[in-house]
């Protein structure tokens, strides 16, 4: 008898719909899609991390264009062959069932019935057209082949090649003073006079005072990795002198707003790693002058999405990474290579 109320409801709702002649998409169907589907199935847009978020499986349910554009998703007047209806009525443990198991319960029988009725009646949208696909800042209109997801690296060569023009090499005697550490000072490659500087290990022994040793070569440094050192705001003044700095890694240091503000003079910066630092919105705002900035990492900081939007408005093409797009953990017992305890 447990199914009786459902059956009654089911009949009642479909009868009601029949009686009215049609299900109203905007009032009855769209709210279901919005509550249960569009988290994954919406028009490509920039996610909170600034990266392009594409609809899963290419299925878009927040625009008429999207719903009708995917062949077979909705077959008007034939719910049973419509992929959408099939997917929502599969058994809960079927891996193709939508919404997927990890996203919660299946749609209720009433909701499924409503969708079936709507499709069987012709799947009309009324005046609704939904979201328009807009040009997305995060998805850089890509390189020559139109491939998505450019990773930086070699493109910086051009900036470095330009920056090294006319730069005379540092005297070997000066470079020899770095032989005892704590820094490794090397050419950025191809016998360039520009330098790449990192720490030789035991990074927690490197502090602000040691940065003064870089002063004689400051104008030649184009890569500087001070990650996991004890460098703080005070040391950033020294870094601010490095006019050819292209790539700066300050991840997991105590650098905060004051320090980041001191970097505003490094106009050639292309990549700035502030992961796990104490920077916040105030410091971020100071970076607005760095028009060449391409990559900015601010995971595990106080920086807010609003500050990133403001910064990105002023620096076209800037990619800001706020956090990882980590996979869901593995379900218990999955995989034959699980560790045996």
């Amino acid at each position: 008898m447990r199914t009786l109320p459902f059956t009654v409801l089911f009949l009642a709702s479909s009868l009601l719909a029949q009686a009215k002649g049609s299900v109203d998409f905007q009032k009855q169907i769209l709210p279901i899609f919005e509550a249960r589907c569009v988290e994954c199935h919406s028009t490509a847009h920039a996610g909170p991390d600034g990266k392009l978020k594409k609809p899963k499986g290419g299925v878009v349910l927040d625009s008429k264009e999207g719903i009708t554009g995917k062949k077979g998703l909705i077959v008007a007047k034939n719910a049973d062959t419509s992929a959408l209806y099939v997917a929502i009525t599969l058994p809960a443990d079927d891996e193709d069932r939508m919404p997927p198991e990890k996203k919660g319960d299946p749609l209720s029988k009433e909701q499924a019935a409503l969708i079936k009725t709507w499709i069987d009646e012709g799947a009309a949208f009324g005046s609704w057209t939904g979201k328009k696909a807009e040009p997305i800042a995060a998805a850089k209109p890509n390189d020559k082949d139109g491939k998505v997801g450019k990773v930086s690296g070699k493109p910086k060569v051009d900036a470095i090649v330009r920056l090294q023009e006319g730069v005379k090499p540092i005297a070997p005697a000066t470079l020899a003073t770095f032989a005892e550490g704590p820094f490794t000072v090397v050419s950025v490659g191809d016998e360039s006079a520009l330098l790449s500087v990192s720490c030789r290990g035991n990074n927690d022994t490197v502090d602000d005072a040691m940065l003064a040793r870089l002063a004689p070569i400051a104008s030649h440094i184009c890569e500087l990795d001070l990650s996991r050192t004890r460098v703080s705001d005070a040391g950033c003044k020294e870094i601010g002198q490095m006019v050819r700095l292209v790539n700066l890694d300050l991840r997991q240091t105590a650098v905060g707003n004051q320090g980041v503000a001191a970097l505003a003079t490094c106009k050639e910066l292309r990549s700035l790693n502030l992961f796990g630092t104490k920077v916040g919105d105030y410091g971020l705002a100071a970076l607005a002058t760095l028009k060449n900035l391409e990559q900015l990492y601010v995971w595990q900081t106080e920086v807010t999405a609003a500050a990133i939007v403001r910064l990105r408005d002023g620096i076209p093409g800037l990619r800001v990474v706020m956090g990882p797009d980590l996979p869901e953990p593995m379900p218990e017992g999955a995989g034959g290579q699980r560790r045996r305890r």
Binding site: P169, I170, A176, T184, V186, G189, R200
Partner: peptide, 17 residues
């Protein structure tokens, strides 16, 4: 304590010695 980078690594200038 003079690491590989200074003597053998990519420091073209230091290495050229």
């Amino acid at each position: 304590g003079v690491g590989a980078a200074a003597t053998f690594g990519p420091a073209a200038i230091a290495r050229s010695l």
